[in-house]
Design a protein around this nucleic acid. Structure first.
Lengths: 245, 245
DNA sequence: ATTATTATTGAATTTGGATTCAAGATCAAT
DNA sequence: ATTGATCTTGAATCCAAATTCAATAATAAT
């Protein structure tokens, strides 16, 4: 059907290409300006096409942006497999994997993440769509709750309260760090892996009320030095030893 | 100067009154529609005045809304005194007080909190203004870090990383709960005090890697039943006993 | 080579809403 | 009671940006 040669491009393929160029242009503008300053003219200018062409491919800005976000979500969902190589009881690595995913998303697609955030605040329908994706990940954790804590007297909703509450750890921080790029924490010059680990440690501590196993930590081990000076030394690290189910 | 009687109202006072009515109308519309759907006509209609009157009192919507938010921030800062009756080493109550403040804000002024959120995502200047207020509270916690954890090897920035990371606990949750009113957690029917306590417990656990003292908990004590079934019983609760500096 | 289809342009029009303003109403001062 | 100031109205105007569309170019089918 469509020619693959460099010069000759089929009509249909050419159309698809222009469509794609508009999309990429929009992403570029989203990155530097955000959704609410986005104008059709910005997009077509960035793509180097006439203003009128926009409506040949999209009915309005919102539908273009929705397509971008939808694709992002779909792609992320396809490749996440967050808990892929995490062994069954290895909770610290499970949490760290979730954060790796979140951190990578923010670091690689700040414009898109910002836009998702703006859409969620504005548009109930989109918020539902996003939450469906986001909560799917959270529910992975909620689901294993009764298995990990068989003795706990928590209801399912209470488990959810905990997971949803803890999911906020680092959310704002990631935004300030990667999107606004305007946080005192930028001074720390953290790599993605480092940041993911720190946040995972914080989450782990809250979940289990103890530290993750020392040997798993590659960057954030200094957090283990946090001890109430009023309590007996070496209290909790030992008790919550190992990390196997 | 101005008459206090019910019927007769001075010229100046009448003006102030209309100004106030516009402001309250705007808050009402913010509550139900949010900043980005806010129109001057909506505000004047809600206030029951002609469209043109708006510009007699405000140059544009943004300045009106900024005034509303500025007043909110100022009032909140004036009355917060968050750590007022928290005794020096009583960390659990300190955290709980912070959450009481956050929860109350969301419960009482969902429209304004939503608007703050929207402004922060859009407007770098406002975000700075808000962060100045928000970080002021967080720095209360950062500042006492070296005092509470004298043996810790954390740098100031690392302490900040922890505090900022943990500050996210419950942020999204409060939005979904009080602003969007669309969270599976609504099923729990939590009172403000209950929610504040749950979130404080989560934060406390992450900070100290142990549970807060049982006797402080009025609602969330079931969280103490969370124990890794692989570890020895009663491990950390005892070690981190009491709560005095 | 001719014809039909799709892609692209940019000027003209439309739209949603902010902004202005002349005129009328209300009020305090004299 | 008259005057001058402020408050209020709503229709008229303005404006930025979206949207349309007739004309032209590029490509594919015959």
């Amino acid at each position: 059907m469509s020619t693959v040669s460099t010069q000759r491009v089929g009509r249909r393929a050419k159309g698809e290409l222009a469509r794609e160029r508009l999309k990429n242009a929009a992403i570029a503008v989203l990155d530097r300006a955000g959704y609410h300053q986005l104008r059709i003219k910005d997009v077509t200018a960035e793509a180097g096409v006439a203003a009128g062409l926009f409506h040949h491919y999209y009915s309005d800005l919102r539908s273009l942006v929705e397509e971008i976000l939808e694709e992002h979500i779909a792609k992320a969902e396809a490749t996440e497999v967050i808990e892929r190589d995490v062994s069954k009881g290895d909770w610290f690595n499970r949490l760290r994997s979730h954060y790796r995913f979140a951190v990578r998303n923010h670091a690689e697609h700040p414009g898109i993440m910002r836009c998702i955030h703006q859409f969620c605040a504005d548009d109930p329908d989109f918020r539902k769509r996003w939450n469906a994706s986001y909560y799917k990940r959270l529910e992975l954790l909620v689901d294993v709750f009764p298995f990990v804590f068989p003795d706990s007297e928590l209801s399912a909703d209470e488990a959810r309260l905990i997971v949803y509450g803890l999911s906020g750890i680092g959310q704002d921080l990631l935004r300030e760090y990667y999107i606004e790029r305007d946080s005192p924490l930028l001074a720390l010059q953290l790599s993605e892996e480092e940041l993911a680990e720190w946040l995972a440690v914080l989450q782990y501590r809250s979940l289990f009320a103890c530290n993750p196993p020392k040997e798993q930590l590659r960057y954030a081990s200094r957090i283990l030095t946090i001890k109430r000076h009023s309590s007996s030394p070496e209290h909790s690290d030992q008790a919550c030893k190992g990390d196997l189910a």
